[in-house]
Amino acid sequence: MVEKQESHIVVKDITLAYGSNVVQQNVSFTINRGDVFIIMGGSGCGKSTIMRGLTGLKQPSTGEILYNGVEFYGSTENGDRIRRSFGVMFQSGALWSSMTLAENVSLPIEQYTNLKPGQISKIVSLKLSLVGLGGFEDYYPSQISGGMRKRVGVARAMAMDPEVLFFDEPSAGLDPVSARLLDDLILQLKESLKTTMVVVTHELASIFAIGNNSVFLDPETKTAIAHGDPKKLLRESSDPKVINFLTRGQGRKVMRP
């Protein structure tokens, strides 16, 4: 892609900790507008925690996170405005179980717009059909499969036409074909809506299929040890940990035909 690189989210030197247990420290990276940005690393390295930091669920103990140059945790008004500019898909979908799928998707719209119920329900149907679930409006989350719940999670995240979409382990717990379909969906949405996508995952197939920028988190040194296009990292990285991860522990030679 030869587009102008405009930075969208800038993470400066953040440290995230639960009590005295530091999860990641001095992590910095930049997400450009229109990126499919992968946050990757082995299990337990703090990928999801970094995402919680980015989405306002866990305030970093030091450092700052800038959206379009505005500090997220600077003031409540800025925080609220920025929150409205992104959507989050949680690992298990995190649908509100007491509401139907339509109500799940419509809640953010009802909260933040003055649209009439008829207009809202049209938007909701559109979003649900975008993720292949048209006609499921009146189902409850418990009545559909895990893969469908994730897709409803995507629909809900997109409800407000956000500038950024976050995905927490989109392919976890899905069969390979459904995982692939979800990857395709992410790419199609990015192409058509020009949304910046931030994906937390450790699925190599997804990483190479959709990612064009990334950060690699290391659980031992508790910081980011590599940045950039995952395909390029696979070819050019000199860090044994990164190579090991990107080749499923097989080394570079095996991956090359």
Partner: peptide, 20 residues
Amino acid sequence: AQLGTMQVNEELDALEALGI
């Protein structure tokens, strides 16, 4: 029990991430 289960399912996080 209702709110606790919502916490377990990340439903509270989902609300908070929406700014609710």
